[in-house]
Each structure stands twice: as structure tokens, then as C-alpha cells.
Design a protein around this nucleic acid. Structure first.
Lengths: 187, 187
DNA sequence: AACTCTGTACAGTTTTTTCTGTACGAACTT
DNA sequence: AAGTTCGTACAGAAAAAACTGTACAGAGTT
């Protein structure tokens, strides 16, 4: 006990330092559509010396294996962790994606692309319903409303076109010509 | 009843068309950090002919005035609605922000800026804790872990620097030089 | 083929978020 | 000053999300 008293204290310090960052990730990871506790899972895997199994995560976080399974899947879909194979190891192994730029892009692209497409579809359908109404109605007041709505929806469409272009900027990687990746600088 | 039977049917059609778009907004507005039902509130105000009061929203959505109050505040903070003054009207009036580019930028900038700053602070603190540990510990194994963690945190710092630059791109409006706003095109 | 091990589907519980009704302060009217 | 009207703070109810334990299918081993 005397011989490794310092070691235990140091390991504790290490954990504390790591936890400082992990808890901050947990608080902010909602931007990636990830819940805080899955954010802690990410942080745990991030600081692990080697790829982790679901059982190790469960053990380390004191949470059920089921939660680890669903949590890891969420992280995987956000391109925030990746699976690793090791010869002779039957369990699934996961480590954090090292290219954070890629994780960011994946999340940003898939979420916004998906939303944009659906909204554009909705706009087109709404417009078509309004067009029909505008032609069949005999009430001038309604005609006016229809015209106004069609106008605003066309504006919305233009906006989504812009969003789409922004997404493409990230998807194509051209964003990195405009905003270059940073070199590591020691502070 | 015979004379305005068509009118009622047409008004119903108008509502249906509008609702097609509103329900899609409700489903996707979580990207702006807004809940679905507040998304419906947004949609309702969006299609309103004139700025709405809390009571009108409450009436129109069949929800409590309290919810309208908190919902509108959320939309206001996301720059998605704005307050309007009308002479002689005592109630607060709201309409949707017409510049969707601005709404997008506001949400994107404030949320990411805030998260980035906090994460960078956490990284710096974690690094300083690790530096101290690295100097005081006598265990080589721990020294190794510390070095590895410091390295990865420095990489993370670089990533946040990049995110920060991306945010600035939107904040300064330079994004519009690279991805121009779209003209309205009828489809 | 029987047995073991691993990941996940599913139902039920716990926790968190959203929503409502009451109550009250501030601003305006009489 | 007394009386309205309006928006929102707050506590409790309702709804949604997160988490767990059990159970089971599929792959690997013996």
C-alpha cells in the first residue's frame, strides 16, 4: 500500500483531468444530436488506451450493456466512433473516429440534407395544393391568400436551395480550401 | 349555408395545404433547437395574414397561453420571430422573421460559438491538470498516458480553431460571397 | 448437434421535458 | 386610487425520452 500510494493518487488525478473534458463534451454534444450520457460514453472511449468492448464501456460507466449498444450505434451513425477488428477477439471493438472534421461534416450533412429534402418536398406539395385551390375558388379573398402563400413558399424554396449549396460545400470538401484545417499549435 | 358552402370548403382546403408544410416544419425544426410543437407555432405565425397576439396563437393552436409565451420566447431567441408594434394595440404582436438566412446564421453561430468556447476552456484546463501530473508523477506508465492525452487534446484544440473559423465565415457574411443567396425561381 | 458467448429487440421503469392552470406584478384605463 | 388587461413565474400533471433486465437470435466452439 505504501509503495503504490502515489500511483493510486496519480491515477485518480488522471481520471479527474480526463473527466473535466468528458463532462464538457457531454454538455455540448447535443449539437451533434447526441444525448449527454452518450456523450460521456464518447468521452470514455476517446480517452481509452485501446479500443473498447461493450462490456468494458458498461463496466467503466456503470451503465447497462443495452445502453452501451444503443449509444454506440448513435455514435457510429454520427461517424463519431468506428469499429475495429482484432484477430482472435470475438467481441466488437470500438474506438473514436480520429478525424473530427469528418465527424462534424457527416453530422452536418446528413441531418441538414435530410431535413432540407423533406421540407422541399412539402413545399412542392403545398404549392401544388394551393395552385389547384387558386384556380378553382371563386372567392377573391382566398385567391389573395393563396397568392401570398405561394410567394412566401417560393422564397422558402430559394432559401433551401442555398442551404443545399452550403451542404455541398462541406460534402465536396471545398470548405477546406476556404477554411483550411488547422495545424496543431502548442499553447 | 348554401351561399358560403363553397367558401367553407375552400377555407378548409387552404388550411389543409398550409398544414402540409407546417407539419413538416414541426418535424425538422429540432435542427434549430426548437421542439416540434413550437415548430407548429412558428408555422401558424408564418401563414398568418397579420402579426399575431399570444391569445390568437393560443386560440388557433388550442394550446395554453403560457405555452405560447414560452414558445415565442424560444423562437425569438433563435431569431425566428420578431415583435411588431402597432399603434393602439396593447398586446404584443409577433411575425416570423422574413430573412431565413439570418435565422439560420443566428442559430448556427450562437449555438456553436458557445459550445466551442466552453470546450476550448475545458481543454485548456484539462491540459494544465495533465501537465502538472506529468511533472510530478514518478510512474512512467502514467507519464505515457499523459503525453498521449495531451497530444490528442492539442489535436482537438486545432479542430475547434477550425470550427471557430467556420463560424466566423457565417458571422461576417463572407459565406454569401462563396455561396450566394438564391434568386426566387418559379417551379 | 449441444453448448457458449455476444449484441440487440422489447417491455416495463425511471428520469426528463413539455404543457397547463393559478397567481401575481407591471402597465394602462377610468 | 381602484379596476382592467397583459405577459410570465411557478408548481403540478401529462407526455416523451432514456435506461434497465430479460429474453432470444445468430455466430463460434466443442
Amino acid at each position: 500500500m505504501e509503495s503504490n500510494g502515489d500511483l493510486d493518487a496519480d491515477l485518480n488525478k488522471l481520471e479527474k483531468a480526463r473527466h473535466r473534458f468528458i463532462s464538457e463534451i457531454a454538455k455540448n454534444v447535443h449539437l451533434y444530436g447526441i444525448s449527454p450520457s452518450v456523450g460521456r460514453l464518447y468521452g470514455t472511449v476517446f480517452f481509452s488506451d485501446k479500443p473498447m468492448t461493450l462490456d468494458e464501456m458498461s463496466e467503466s460507466l456503470g451503465m447497462s450493456k443495452t445502453s452501451m449498444s444503443t449509444g454506440i450505434r448513435a455514435l457510429y451513425e454520427a461517424n463519431m466512433v468506428e469499429q475495429v477488428w482484432e484477430k482472435g477477439v470475438r467481441k466488437d471493438l470500438y474506438k473514436t473516429e480520429e478525424d473530427w472534421y469528418k465527424s462534424f461534416s457527416t453530422v452536418f450533412i446528413t441531418r441538414w440534407r435530410n431535413a432540407t429534402e423533406k421540407n422541399v418536398t412539402a413545399i412542392k406539395e403545398t404549392k401544388s395544393m394551393l395552385h389547384e385551390l387558386g384556380e378553382t375558388t371563386s372567392c377573391d379573398e382566398i385567391k389573395e391568400k393563396v397568392t401570398r402563400d405561394l410567394n412566401r413558399l417560393t422564397e422558402a424554396e430559394a432559401y433551401y436551395g442555398w442551404i443545399n449549396d452550403v451542404i455541398s460545400l462541406f460534402e465536396s470538401g471545398k470548405i477546406f480550401d476556404i477554411v483550411p484545417k488547422k495545424q496543431k499549435v502548442n499553447t
